[in-house]
Design a binder for these strands. Sequence first.
DNA 1: TCCTTGTGTATACATGTGTATACCGTCAAT
DNA 2: ATTGACGGTATACACATGTATACACAAGGA
Lengths: 210, 210
Amino acid sequence: MNVLTGGKLKLVQAGLRLITETRSLTSLGLRELAREAGLNPNTFYRHFKNLDEFGLQVLGYIAADMKSGVRELRQMAESSEQASHDTVTYVYHYFLANPAATTVAVRELHGPSPLLRKALEAQLNASAREMAEDIIERQLVNAVPPETIHEISRMTIRYILFRAMDYIEKPEQREAIQRETERFINRQFRGAMLDNLSQGDIETLMKESS
Amino acid sequence: MNVLTGGKLKLVQAGLRLITETRSLTSLGLRELAREAGLNPNTFYRHFKNLDEFGLQVLGYIAADMKSGVRELRQMAESSEQASHDTVTYVYHYFLANPAATTVAVRELHGPSPLLRKALEAQLNASAREMAEDIIERQLVNAVPPETIHEISRMTIRYILFRAMDYIEKPEQREAIQRETERFINRQFRGAMLDNLSQGDIETLMKESS
DNA sequence: TCCTTGTGTATACATGTGTATACCGTCAAT
DNA sequence: ATTGACGGTATACACATGTATACACAAGGA
């Protein structure tokens, strides 16, 4: 049984709630958690060996959740422009719907715990790989070699996560952030098409097209 | 007198030392700090009102230091490729030489304290503005409108900071990270040159050049 | 000379923390 | 019907934390 019930669920939810407010996963206290969950402090031990295990488990659930979310992303899209727009829209909406999970991910990705950092990085790389393979399979940008697509995917995933906090916290900037992210992606891929051209080549190319 | 002396200096240094190890600025304790500094816990109060003020001051010193470092960046560079290479080299070396300051910046940029976050963001935006104005003044990429240069600068600054932790912690990846970052910047600017072209335009352009 | 100011120390207190031990109800299996 | 695991509780302990008050001592100006 992998699903959360009862006290364990309450504790995890309490953790996510606290994190969204002001805290970070690694700074949560056992008593604090129990208090927020409305349980006796010692109940914590019924479900987790210590706080590290708690953190890892929370991360695990978040990862599973995100993964199932991203999987739904495999949709139709005619062009790469279209794809980037759709993807960005979807991902940001996901972040907005799961602010706690997003905050955890952003905070702990550079947080003080090497354990959590490693786990999160693996998770991000997996997402990036999926994204890249999707792009390659659907031949959205076949002018760019696969390895470059993977690299850009990794960058993009991180950039989006980076902007996610602002997206969540500053509603009036959401549209701007989303468009900015789309520009980011498009410039990366378009720029990558010119990777093997020298700067001189590009300058003459630009003059020709004007 | 803006320079740090005696106990105050010791406390700030202790803070930076602790942060580089495992901690984050906002999670530092007053007693912990004093212990690391070899001082009596209450000496802390002689210099700082509370831990928030301590954090802000530390950030202030870091910001001042970084600013003076970045200012030295205004150097000669023939082309934008050359400039991006030089800049990236310099910035990463700076990070390497100031791991504590870098770690603080990365951690707190998305950390739990809104106060520190705001302060850091302002600092980053200032750096990005400087970078953009430098690029514009020296006409390194005059095919791209100023507003776009500013946008790319903001993205770049954040991306570099993002990668800084890996750069510091994984020596064997440093070269790779640096080259990756250069590609990032070049693709952004090259991609931006094509901003006002449709996807069809680009495809024909690519075919012509082959 | 005295007095103030700056810096560091010592002691003390209330509060919060992680953890250990022991107790209790529910419920399913034997 | 008894047993044992599971989830939850109560009490207690040792320790760390932020903070308040009071003391010490050096340097400098009046």
